[in-house]
Amino acid sequence: MLEELQRLQAHVRVLKTRLAEFESENQTLSEAQLTSNQQHQAQIEQKNETINSKEEEIKSLTDQLSSSQTQLKQLNDDAITLADRYSRLEKSCTDLKNRFQEILAERNELRVVKEKLQNEQRHSNQEIQALKNERDRLLQKNEHAKAKVEAIIQRLSILGTAQDQHAQEIQQLAHPSDASEEA
């Protein structure tokens, strides 16, 4: 029994040692668990902050997306408006080109008419000049004839013959204005 008691005491000692080891290990594990819980709590808080920042980022990106969609809609509307304007401008440009071609054709026709009129004007000026020359020649011829008639009248009046009467009549015929003044 003594042996058993000693064995039991040895077992109790071993159990106490083990109990002390287990308590020490338990203490260490409790501290490790506490540290681990604190670390996990810190990680959870960090993850929550990350989640909050990501949610804010998502909200910001959602706002940006809606703003971008609004801008896209506005840009599409502007693009449609610009396309309409472009088509109208293109049509106007085509109309202007056609009108310009018509104007060029009219200008060319007017040039032809102008050249024709200038040629006619030159011919008319030449005819007028020829007519003036003819008139001057006829006036000179008339003056020459008048001078001859007056010379003949003077010769007849100088002759002093019975033909004076006829000479006066001829003179009256040559100068009817002089005759009306004498009357």
Rank of each mutant, 00 (worst) to 15 (best):
L173C: 01
D78A: 11
A145H: 06
E181H: 01
Q118N: 08
G160N: 13
D63E: 07
I103P: 09
K146L: 15
K73R: 12
Q27H: 09
T94K: 04
L139Y: 06
D178H: 10
H11D: 03
E182F: 12
L89P: 02
Q129M: 02
K141S: 11
N76T: 11
E57H: 01
T17P: 04
Q74V: 08
R18F: 02
R135W: 05
E169F: 13
E181D: 02
A147P: 08
R122C: 06
E56V: 05
A10L: 05
D77S: 08
S87E: 11
Q165Y: 13
T161Y: 10
Q71C: 01
E150K: 15
A130S: 09
D77A: 11
L156C: 11
L72F: 13
L61N: 00
K97N: 10
K47I: 13
H144L: 11
A79I: 15
K148R: 07
N125C: 05
D178R: 08
A167W: 15
I158A: 14
L72E: 04
S92G: 09
I128S: 04
A147F: 13
S157L: 15
T81F: 10
E4F: 06
D136M: 00
G160A: 11
H166P: 09
E120G: 09
C93W: 08
Q6I: 02
H166K: 15
H40Y: 11
M1F: 02
S87W: 07
L117G: 07
K73P: 04
Q171V: 09
R99E: 07
N76W: 03
L159M: 14
E127M: 07
H11R: 04
I153S: 00
H123Q: 14
I153R: 00
E169I: 14
S66L: 00
E115S: 14
L75W: 15
Q165V: 14
K148C: 05
T17C: 07
Q64C: 03
M1G: 02
R111M: 13
R122T: 06
C93Q: 12
E109M: 10
L2N: 03
Q64L: 09
E115L: 11
Q126L: 04
Q33L: 12
I128C: 04
E150H: 14
Q69K: 09
S67Q: 12
I152H: 15
N125S: 05
R122N: 10
E102T: 07
L75P: 04
E57Y: 03
A79N: 11
Q46S: 13
Q64Y: 01
G160W: 12
S68G: 05
H144Y: 08
A167P: 10
Q126E: 09
T161Q: 10
T161K: 03
N98A: 08
Q9V: 01
L65K: 00
Q140T: 09
L89V: 06
I170H: 01
D63P: 00
A10T: 03
T50A: 08
E49Y: 12
Q43E: 14
E25K: 04
L110M: 07
E143S: 04
